[in-house]
Nucleic acid binder design. Structure first.
Length: 502
RNA sequence: GCCCCCAUCGUCUAGAGGCCUAGGACACGACCCUUUCAAGGUUGAGAUCAGGGGUUCGAAUCCCCUUGGGGGCACCA
């Protein structure tokens, strides 16, 4: 049995896309499960749209998701690794040239002088006539004189690959099973080299997959109809045809192919929103695949262990952000304290930068908060919302929120004054959640109030909001002095309220 | 227009002819816990397995047709 060699071949014409990440993951899981080789190849032949920044984003994203490749291009100060390089297509130009020359010499390809304008006009004519768009073969049998004449006009030719008529290409897809497509449906002879001499996708993918000894091509279903072209090219090149596996697409909510127009497709944005890679990988793996058991929360090693391409679904699946958030919460709760602190830090720094909080908590402070924070975080970015009130100097709580139903401002103020006295008293002796709670409950009983009413008034007084971590833990985190100061300020604001006459 | 692929709760899925009066998870409702919010627990609602024909003693599972959806058909990848 030959060694498994698979590749992910993104093109740096945009930031790392969710779909690319998922395809990368399935290739990665397949390779690791089989003990094979996972290769990264950059398809940068679209020079008009490729940029270094996108390339960086793609590499960073894949690194973030902890997918490591065994062979790939040089990035930054990392040298290129692998013996089948280079792994950047723009550095492989001579190889495509050589392959194209061979096809030309064997008359499996030919020069075509049709201009883009002519081609475009022809395509429009066909569409108007309700015909399938296809190349009409005008340059397929040019004589030497005709070629010279075209050259004399200054026309720059492209190279077209001859698609044999009347042949049915059959292959056994690892996910979809038997697929048969007739060559008549392929749109006619295929351009493989642009007039500027740079090669096109269908050509480079076949040349490179052959040269890099790729054994399994695992990619999105959008390539299914293109596969016969690739098979024809492998054959013409005299190379072994790899196995194909076409993954179902990730869909927008309306079931169309996921697009940035309708969905959040950039992996970097999910990272910025505080999703963690464990959850992201877990979610992506389960989009279109399942273990067949009821396991849902799976680590990368567990995914590798259980992965099986044959059990991948055939139907496309809608990206469900709510489910991703749930998984993210699951994974956040599993992190160790130190790990979580490290991951939270950049998000807190961002809160400072955005002016939402005024200073950064120390590791010690953060660690003390973890027990009440960890199970409340759907994403890392939610941390600011959760405990941000601790790291601002002044709070101006809304009096309306401190007045329970059936109470008025005066009653709320006097209740808070009583609570303040109690808190001040206990706090002088001990400043622990378990010590603060009982006397306040006693106070509620004496006053004949409802627990929730008083506690909510205090909550709003010290946090400025109606939702917070548990009240007494919050007070401890805030500190004795600041707690009292905030209650004082809250009372002042209540007293400034005009008396309500019902 | 032509070609290809697909079809189980709103969503992700289990299901490889009898285990299915279709299971799990997310989301949703109720309850428990409870100082708010979470988390956790219990529980409920939610799918005539797109429709119609076959095959079979028996079909969500196999075959055919219809319908619906998606993808592809570039000097993009």
């Amino acid at each position: 049995m030959t060694e498994v060699r698979v590749r992910i071949a993104p093109s740096p014409t945009g930031p790392l896309h969710l779909g690319t990440a998922r395809t990368a993951l399935f290739n990665f899981l397949f390779a690791r499960h089989a003990g094979g080789t996972f290769i990264l190849r950059l398809e940068d032949t679209d020079q008009a749209r490729s940029t270094d920044a996108f390339e960086r984003d793609i590499i960073d994203g894949l690194h973030w998701l902890e997918m490591t490749w065994d062979e790939g291009p040089a990035v930054g100060d990392e040298p290129e690794c692998g013996t089948y390089g280079p792994y950047r297509q723009m550095q492989r130009l001579p190889r495509y040239r050589e392959a194209a020359d061979r096809l030309l010499a064997e008359d499996k390809a030919y020069y075509c002088y049709c201009s883009p304008e002519e081609l475009d006009a022809e395509r429009r004519r066909q569409e108007a006539a309700r015909q399938s768009p296809r190349y009409n073969g005008r340059c397929a049998q040019l004589t030497a004189e005709q070629r010279v004449a075209f050259e004399a006009e200054g026309r720059e030719p492209v190279v077209r690959f001859r698609i044999p008529p009347d042949r049915t290409i059959v292959f056994d897809d690892m996910i979809r099973g038997h697929v048969a497509i007739d060559t008549s449906a392929l749109g006619g002879d295929l351009v493989i080299v642009r007039s500027d001499g740079t090669p096109l996708y269908h050509f480079t993918v076949a040349v490179d997959d052959a040269a890099m000894a790729i054994t399994h091509v695992i990619r999105g279903e959008d390539h299914l109809s293109n596969t016969p072209k690739h098979i024809l090219l492998f054959e013409a090149l005299g190379s072994a045809v790899p196995q194909f596996g076409h993954l179902p697409l990730i869909l927008n909510a309306d079931r169309t192919k996921m697009s940035k127009r309708k969905s959040e497709t950039a992996v970097a944005n999910y990272r910025a929103e505080g999703f963690i890679p464990e959850a992201f990988v877990n979610y992506l793996a389960l989009l279109g695949w399942s273990t067949g058991t009821e396991e849902e929360v799976l680590s990368l090693p567990e995914l590798i262990d259980r992965f099986d391409l044959a059990s991948v679904n055939k139907a496309g699946s809608i990206f469900d952000r709510e489910r991703l958030e749930w998984l993210n919460g699951q994974w956040i709760r599993r992190l160790s304290p130190d790990d979580l602190i490290d991951r939270l830090r950049p998000f807190l720094e961002a809160e400072v930068a955005a002016g939402h909080i005024e200073w950064l908590p120390s590791d010690g402070e953060l660690r003390a908060l973890l027990p009440v924070v960890q199970e409340r975080l759907p994403t890392l970015a939610a941390v600011g919302d959760l405990i941000g009130f601790l790291f601002v100097k002044d709070l101006e709580p809304d009096p309306a929120l401190m007045i329970p139903k059936r109470w008025d401002a005066a009653k709320a103020a006097s209740a808070l004054r009583a609570a303040r006295r109690t808190i001040a008293e206990v706090g002088r002796v001990s400043w622990e959640a378990d010590e603060i709670e009982p006397p306040l409950r006693r106070l509620v009983e004496e006053g004949g109030w409802k627990v929730g009413d008083l506690f909510m008034a205090i909550r709003v007084a010290i946090t400025g909001r109606t939702v917070s971590p548990p009240l007494f833990d919050t007070m401890v985190a805030l500190g004795y002095e600041r707690t009292l100061a905030r209650i004082d300020r809250a009372i002042e604001r209540l007293e400034a309220q005009p008396a309500v006459t019902p």
